[in-house]
Amino acid sequence: MTTDAPLLKVTDLSFSIGEKQILHNVSFDIKTGEWVSIVGPNGAGKSTLLKCLMRILKMDAGDVRFLGKAISHLSQKALATRIAYVPQSTGVVSPFSVREHVTLARYAHLKPLCGPQKRDMEVVESCIAEAGLSQLAGRSVSSLSGGERQRVYLAAAFAQEAQLLLLDEPNTFLDPKCSFDVLQLLQNANKNRETAILSVTHDINAAAVCSDTMLALRGGEIMYYGEATSFVQDAILQKVYEAPFSFVRHPETGQKLTLPWRLS
C-alpha cells in the first residue's frame, strides 16, 4: 500500500554550523513502509540529517513535509506522534525500569497530571512483548546488556506509534547475534506495520540486505540515492568512501556484498 504523496518529502535541506556547511541541498523522499539507509564516511552529516528531521537541530533552509504537511507547522508533540527517533547510544543510561522507560515514550499521547491510560499500557505491553522483553520488563534498564538496551530503546520508539522511525546506528557496538536480533525486529515492524525506517549505518552489507533504498552522503551532499541492491559497486563505493573495496557474492542469494580489507 503506497499512497501517492510520500510519507516524508525532504527538499533542499541545508544546515551549517557557523561557516561550516554540514548539509547542502539534500533532497529525498520516503514512502510508507520503505526502509532507507543512510551511509557515508564519518562527518558526512548523516546524524545531523536525522537531528534536523526530528527538529533537534534547526535547519537553515529547505522544506520537510510529512504527508504533505510542513513539519515546521507541527508542535514537537504532534511531530513525535508521526516520527520517532532513536539516537546513537551515548552511554547515557535510563534511570528507569524497562516498563517505565517504554511508558514514558508515550509522552506525546499522555496528558499532564494524568497517568498512562489503559490504551497506553496496552501499547506499552505489546511493544515490550514484540521486542522480546517480557521477561525483563521489571528490570532496570541500567542492569541490562547493550543488546537488551538497544531493544528497549526500539520498543520505546515503537510505543510512540509513529509511521516513521529515525535510527542512528541501531546495530553499532552489538555482537553479531544481537545485531541480527535488532535488524530482525526492525524488519518485522517494517513489514508487518509498514513502519517506514530511515537508519544511519556504517554496516554496508546489512544496509544492502535490509533496506529498499540507499542514500549515501559525503561532505553534506548526496553521492548516491537509489536502490539498495545496486549500491554495492566499486565505482559508487569509491566515490562515497574514497577507499578500495573488494566484493563477493552471497552463496545463497547471489547478492553482491563487500569484504573486510586485507591489511598490508
Partner: peptide
C-alpha cells in the same frame, strides 16, 4: 535529544 524525540518542547 531523547526527550525532544518523544515530543518534549
Amino acid at each position: 535529544e531523547e526527550a525532544i524525540g518523544r515530543g518534549v518542547n
